[in-house]
Design a protein around this nucleic acid. Structure first.
Length: 425
DNA sequence: TCTGGGGTCCTAGGACCC
DNA sequence: TCTGGGGTCCTAGGACCC
């Protein structure tokens, strides 16, 4: 068996840390970042976690504590986080070309072939460099499989003495560490499987690793079996270095206030549709199906309604008006008056690369006619002048359905008008 | 008043074909 | 009167991730 080594680099409390980089007053303060519509808390600084508050708590439920403990709350500033993420990833790729950007704040590196190095020292060097170049703290876990690198990362975060870097490969305490990992904290084991495992007396990673293959596969499919094997040190999940083209694109958001009018739903649908098709073009793809869904607020006692339907285009396209038309037809089909709607969304599927779109006797392909020229032109203008400078009347002008972001920080790194200014005394 | 958004993968079962 | 079996494709639903 080939010996492999993976490192998982994970930014600590990423969103909160990003806010801190540009506002030193936040250092050592409890910070919470809210989801879209300033709904639930999606990211917390350690100080906030220590107050017993956890991810998923609705912001309004901790109003008293915010005052009492001077908690700093922010709307999500995804433009800022996205840009900071790119800086981190760029820094990491200095250390190896074999990098998988796993999420906005995490990356796997392959260290296979680097065995002549002391991994712990190398990890320290990576950690220090990211800190120096971006101002963001990271934790690093190293192991012979991705799942074990995740375990090691958790260990590094929880135990100060590691200095934020931990290598589990060949570690004499491996079994003890696996025993310390509760099933719900294993990468690949979610809520449902955790419950099921506990019902069957399996409570930690060590126990799962010792459960017979057949049983694991039967209960958790082949995916679960891979996880169990990875815990034993058998690498089953490869590093994915090239980015797969998307198979579906979803754009959906909850409304700031409930929406009842079909006209407003149409506008919101149009706006998500515009964004979704933009994303489609960014990857040079075309699609031939769009789905629209809408739903009321399930947390309210109002009458409930949720529905979806889809529409196929006659030929694959990336021309926004094609999708706007289809989306509106679908929306009309599923809309029922008399409900307070909370959310509408679109999903684009049946996606293929532009060059692979089948030819049609009766209709030109997207590549071959003026539609592509128009779209490219719009994309270029919006790219230069700022997104949505040029858009469609269908998205409306008042947009009362827009999401709430009342405590948004500036676009420090992406907007000339928001660049931090240092005043000399 | 106020409860996120965007993805992927796997499987079971139905439809359809010969 | 008698009413198969196997393969493939598609879809819905359920699980997971951040």
């Amino acid at each position: 068996m080939k010996k492999e080594t993976f490192a998982l680099i994970d930014c600590n409390n990423f969103y909160a840390a990003c806010e801190r980089v540009f506002n030193p007053e936040l250092i050592c303060k409890p910070i919470g970042i809210l989801s879209n519509n300033d709904g639930i808390i999606v990211a917390l600084s350690n100080e906030l976690k220590q107050l017993g508050i956890y991810r998923g708590t609705p912001g309004f439920k901790i109003k008293d504590q915010i005052k009492k403990y001077d908690i700093k709350m922010f709307s999500s500033n995804y433009t800022l986080y996205g840009d900071m993420s790119a800086r981190v990833m760029k820094t990491l790729s200095q250390f190896t070309p074999d990098i998988e950007i796993y999420s906005i704040d995490e990356a796997f590196l392959s260290l296979s072939g680097f065995e002549y190095l002391n991994f712990k020292d190398y990890g320290r060097k990576i950690k220090d460099t990211v800190w120096k170049w971006t101002g963001l703290p990271v934790s690093i876990g190293i192991g012979p499989t991705k799942t074990l690198a995740k375990v090691a990362n958790r260990f590094a975060k929880k135990h100060k003495y590691t200095g934020g870097v931990f290598d589990i490969s060949g570690h004499p305490d491996t079994e003890k560490i696996l025993e310390w990992i509760d099933v719900e904290h294993i990468w690949g084991v979610g809520r449902q499987y955790a419950k099921m495992l506990r019902r069957n007396g399996i409570e930690n990673a060590l126990q799962l690793s010792r459960t017979p293959d057949k049983w694991v596969q039967k209960k958790m499919t082949i995916v679960g079996l891979r996880t169990a094997k990875e815990l034993r040190g058998i690498s089953c999940i490869d590093l994915e270095t090239d980015i797969d083209p998307k198979k579906e694109i979803v754009c959906s958001k909850s409304f700031g206030t409930p929406v009842t009018e079909l006209q407003h739903l149409k506008e919101a649908t149009a706006s998500y549709c515009v964004r979704a098709v933009e994303k489609l073009r960014e990857e040079h793809q075309v699609a031939s199906q769009i789905m629209v869904f809408l739903t009321t607020n399930r947390f309210k006692n109002d009458p409930q309604y949720a529905n979806y339907a889809n529409s196929r285009l006659s030929v694959p396209s990336a021309y926004t008006p094609d999708f706007l038309k289809a989306a509106h037809n679908v929306l009309k089909r599923i809309y029922r008056s008399g409900y307070n709607y909370k959310k509408v969304g679109v999903m684009i599927c049946d996606i293929i690369h532009q060059s692979k779109a089948p030819l049609d006797i009766f209709e030109p392909t997207y590549l071959d006619d003026h539609r592509k020229v128009i779209m490219d032109c719009m994309d270029e203008i919006n790219g230069k002048m700022g997104s949505n400078k040029l858009t469609y009347a269908a998205v409306g002008t008042e947009q009362p359905w827009q999401m709430k972001r009342e405590i948004l920080t500036p676009g420090y790194t992406t907007n000339w008008h928001h660049i931090p200014v240092v005043h000399a005394r």
